[in-house]
Design a protein around this nucleic acid. Structure first.
Lengths: 226, 226
DNA sequence: CCGAATCCGGCATGATACTG
DNA sequence: CAGTATCATGCCGGATTCGG
């Protein structure tokens, strides 16, 4: 018995691949850029290597991703989205915004990875707000991602940008509330839960250009501290 | 030991619910209209009632759907999307179009249900092509769905429309090729694999207003080294 | 070191039967 | 109609081991 749904339906075909465990998060990570097996594995805590191998093969067979030979550091394999797989990016961004509506604070044990932060920044971007091209570097916990925005265009990546960033933001989980407009940039800075290197006014622009609404009555986190 | 992904990520939160088996197809069916337990079960061949019960409870707890008391025919229970769950409709439509790109003909054993046909018509609709409001009724195999289009708006449903349709189309699996533009309306009619009740010219408009491209050509995979 | 393959316990799934 | 009960299979999660 295969695990398809036996239906002549585009959504059922998509669900056959993307509905498998970890598949959506694998595509999410690759939507930020090509990754090695180890990178993907470390970015998805809890996935056994056997399952990851199986998923990568399935996604490769469906032509969502492809294996490439890494060149720079000692060979190895790079996994990258195909053009077909890259078409999923805006769809997963919308799905991520949908899911983020009920996500205000991390639950116990939840982590934030650099790739997911980069994907979240891309999903949060609202074109047409940032006039002067700006590169942001955001540190949130152990995760780091950058976003280079100018007019309608946006480029994101995990970890450290190639060129020097214009604005560097150090934040914590409450960055989510800033993106939702539930935490004003001034309060975030004055309370000390967010620091910014660069013009303080840039944080205002950042919070407007990167926005993910929150449809939830937020209970102010009773506990403070890490 | 829950089946969440342990990540503070909107997509991971969405995948926790929608990544479970059958969940996407349940939402798809409900996106067409409220359904009874039996309707959903019959529209998803192969799902055990125990699994369906579990999914419905999970989706209810996540406020994607809600249980209502059916009124008209002898009470019972109706499952319907909440406003939050209805926000998934355009996303699943895009995901369905993505998956349909590689779907030209049904594989052995694949069926077509009325709800999936209705959802496919909605996903295929391109606004601004149909000028005069028109109600189409499409029969494809054992499935029937209708679409009432006028200007920018569209309404779809499974089975039979409330008001009399303007155009009735009897088709088979090759309807997929018509929607992809790979089968001309004339050829479809002259070959006899599609019949139409009403003005034959309406089929031309239908094929233009309802379109889902098909990318079957083998991707050249222009691998560009990073 | 990276990219897996292998082994094993536990749980979800799929199939069928049965009940309020 | 709307589920619940039961059971075999197979996948997933965790750890270890193997090949380049």
């Amino acid at each position: 018995m295969t695990k398809d749904y036996g239906q002549f339906c585009g959504l059922a075909r998509a669900a056959r691949v993307l509905g498998e465990r970890w598949a959506l998060l694998i595509v999410r990570d690759l939507s930020v850029g090509p990754r090695r097996f180890k990178d993907i594995h470390e970015g998805l805590p809890g996935v056994p290597t056997s399952v990851l191998t199986t998923r990568l093969r399935e996604l490769e067979q469906m032509e969502v991703l492809e294996r490439r030979a890494a060149e720079q550091p000692g060979g190895g394999v790079l996994y990258a989205l195909t053009a077909y797989g890259a078409e999923l990016t805006p769809i997963l961004d919308r799905l991520g915004r949908w899911g983020a509506q009920r996500m205000s604070a991390p639950e116990p044990g939840e982590i934030l990875t650099s790739s997911s932060l980069a994907a979240a920044l891309r999903a949060a971007y609202r074109p047409g707000i940032i006039s002067a091209p700006t590169t942001y570097l955001i540190h949130a916990g152990a995760a780091s991602a950058w976003a280079s925005a100018g007019g309608e265009d946006l480029d994101v990546g995990a970890d450290i940008p190639v060129c020097d960033p214009d604005v560097v933001i150090h934040a914590g989980p409450r960055l989510r509330l800033l993106l939702a407009g539930r935490l004003s940039p001034e309060d975030a800075v004055t309370s000390g839960e967010l620091t910014i290197e660069g013009p303080a006014a840039d944080l205002e622009v950042f919070a407007q250009a990167f926005h993910v609404p929150l449809a939830l009555t937020v209970s102010p986190t009773a506990s403070e501290g890490p």
